[in-house]
Design a protein around this nucleic acid. Structure first.
Length: 567
RNA sequence: UACCCCGUGGUGUAAUGGUAGCACAAGUGGUUUUGGUCCACUUAGUCGAGGUUCGAAUCCUCGCGGGGUAGCCA
């Protein structure tokens, strides 16, 4: 077993949590055991922020030859659904992690949790309180003023036990009574002011059905669940820092095995929101087309968008783990995606906005099969044949009638290379009545077959193309950032994050042409459309009409030049 | 204004009392049958003031700034 972690391929190095574990292993605190857990509540889909936690927890287990459990924190049935339980499992697996036979549910512990609650009552550390919700709030005090004790605080133990059993038995209305830990109403930490640990709630639970009408609260459940599972390091996000004294209190009062809670800063990404409430709203109010909309920061959305799991893992390793509240530039994620895809994605040619080109001196009816490289980064990927004909499509952006200085593509009288094919020269641009260029008449040089001129002459531009006769018609969906503000959740007075929605986050192109090899593509594979970007097949595809999602564009220095007005 | 946490280039991080480094972003050149990739280079940082020390991003004090916490949510 590794007791000291140094560096592994997928972890960024020794973060502060691994440093704590190294120290614990030095002192033998947990007998050099490492057991983490990923504990989502099944009330929504997992997002990239969860990926950070998953990579951390499963990554630590991997690095120390320990184990990581998947545990559903399902103690509030009013928000939880089986659909989410399933999507969470699918997403963790897709990300590349395996909990093996260790999938647990907090609801599996309801019986034990109940016993521990009785134990707390018996030791005089918990009481049944009849105060209303509003009264409890008043008695709690505020951030700057102490609370005051509930009049029910000193009920005899036997009475508390009896009342709690009758709560479980369904004798009282929802909300009529709660079980509270008896700690300290003067604590500067509000979470220690006799926190509620059980409430009456007649809600059907997605796993335990109607067996229970009382449900334990997070603070009581989580520490005990960790204890039951013999977790060593219970890693959670910063907002639970203030809950740690309660976590420790419960386990100490119960006198049971005591894991160590460690908090880290959650992920924030520019131009994205990560709150479950907001994501749920985007879905319910149809600002996006479901949880797996490719614009969503959900893992399901990113998967559909074509982001490789390896890229997300690399991203999580790159951002590191600290306690600093931060806002990570989405460009870093995009870099990781491009880096992964550049290595792995097979290349193809596709035209998004077609402009017909007729090669006047190319024989009518002739088809040549030209050899194209599948991936210049991977010689083992081999080659394929692409059909070339007299009429082809090129990209509208690749022609300008009156080009600026630094435009290297096609223009009247100019010669360019068609990738893997021939040099062509533009002879004439044909326009419609409105003056739009609708067709180009060109000639080709037969001696340049394959793309090289025997006389050594050079061209500045190389264009992608698709045979008009052989091209597969397709729909392509172009995605842009969902929000226009760097930090959409941080909206000005009177506005909400929804006012920061980008109205142009989705553009649908329905007249695109694909080279024939794209017809037999596997749906799970993200490929490159040369010179355009990375794309993947969407589940909306039909045999008649494939639909592609643009995962991300290639880096485009030409677009950057134009944007800055330098060209 | 109570308690807790956190402040290193534009962004994310490393340096655990001993040369402030890496990545992204930005920019400049080179290579190139993808204006991709790749390569080289440039810009730019320890929140502030004291203190301890031969030596401080690191330890101490006081400020300043940011975040969290008042669910019968997690």
């Amino acid at each position: 077993m590794n007791t000291e972690n140094t560096k592994t391929a997928e972890s960024g190095g020794v973060d502060f949590i691994r440093a704590i574990i190294n120290e614990d292993n030095k002192t033998g605190k947990y007998d050099n055991r490492v057991n983490t857990r990923f504990p989502p509540e099944p009330n929504g889909y997992l997002h990239i922020g969860h990926a950070k936690s998953i990579c951390l927890n499963f990554g630590i287990a991997r690095d120390y030859n320990g184990i990581c459990n998947l545990r559903f924190d399902d103690t509030n049935p009013s928000k939880e659904e089986q659909e989410f339980v399933e999507s969470i499992q699918a997403d963790v697996k897709w990300l590349g992690f395996d909990w093996e036979d260790r999938m647990y549910f907090a609801s599996d512990y309801f019986d034990q949790l109940y016993e521990y609650a009785e134990q707390l009552i018996t030791s005089g550390k918990a009481f049944v309180c009849d105060l209303t919700q509003e009264q409890i709030r008043e008695y709690r005090g505020t951030l700057t003023t102490p609370g005051k004790e509930s009049p029910y605080r000193n009920r005899p133990i036997e009475e508390n036990l009896d009342l709690f059993r009758r709560m479980r038995g369904g004798e009282f209305e929802d909300g009529a009574k709660v079980l509270r830990a008896k700690i300290d109403m003067n604590s500067p930490n509000i979470h220690m002011r006799d926190p509620v640990i059980y409430r009456i709630m007649r809600t059907h639970h997605h796993r335990t059905g109607d067996k229970w009408c009382i449900y334990p609260m997070y603070d009581f459940t989580h520490c005990i669940s960790d204890s039951i599972e013999k977790i060593t390091h219970s890693i959670c996000t910063l907002e639970f820092e203030i809950h740690r004294p309660l976590y420790d209190w419960c386990l100490d009062e119960l006198g049971i095995y005591h894991p160590q809670q460690i908090e880290f800063a959650r992920l924030n990404l520019t131009y994205m929101v990560m709150s479950k409430r907001m994501l749920l709203e985007l879905v319910k109010e149809k600002y996006v087309n479901g949880w797996d909309d490719p614009r969503m920061p959900t893992l399901a959305g990113m998967r559909r968008r074509g982001y490789p799991a390896a890229a997300i893992r690399a991203f999580c390793a790159t951002i590191g783990v600290t306690k600093v509240n931060s806002l990570t530039d989405i460009a870093l994620l995009e870099y990781c995606i491009r880096e992964e895809l550049n290595k792995t994605a097979p290349r193809f040619m596709a035209v998004q906005r077609p402009l017909k080109v007729v090669i006047e001196n190319y024989p009518e009816g002739q088809t040549e099969q030209l050899e194209a490289v599948n991936n210049p980064e991977d010689p083992g990927a081999g080659t394929r044949l692409v059909p070339f004909t007299r009429e082809i499509y090129i990209e509208q952006d690749d022609f300008m009638e009156d080009p600026p200085r630094k435009f290297f593509r096609l223009a009247p009288g100019r010669e360019v290379r068609l990738r893997y094919a021939y040099f062509i020269t533009c002879k004439e641009a044909i326009k419609d009545d409105a003056g739009n260029v609708v067709e180009l008449r060109c000639t080709y040089d037969p001696a340049t077959k394959g793309g090289d001129a025997p006389d050594g002459r050079k061209v500045k531009g190389t264009l992608h193309w698709v045979s008009a006769e052989h091209g597969i018609k397709s729909e392509v969906r172009l995605y842009d950032r969902l929000f226009t503000a760097e930090n959409p959740a941080d909206a000005p007075e009177g506005k909400t994050y929804k006012d920061n929605l980008n109205p142009d986050s989705l553009e649908i192109l329905d007249n695109c042409y694909l080279e024939p090899a794209l017809g037999g593509l596997e749906s799970s594979c993200t490929c490159q459309f040369e010179r355009l970007g990375y794309y993947c097949l969407d589940p909306d595809s039909t045999p008649e009409k494939p639909v592609f999602n643009r995962t991300i564009t290639l880096r485009d220095t030409w677009a950057k030049l134009r944007k800055k007005g330098k060209a």
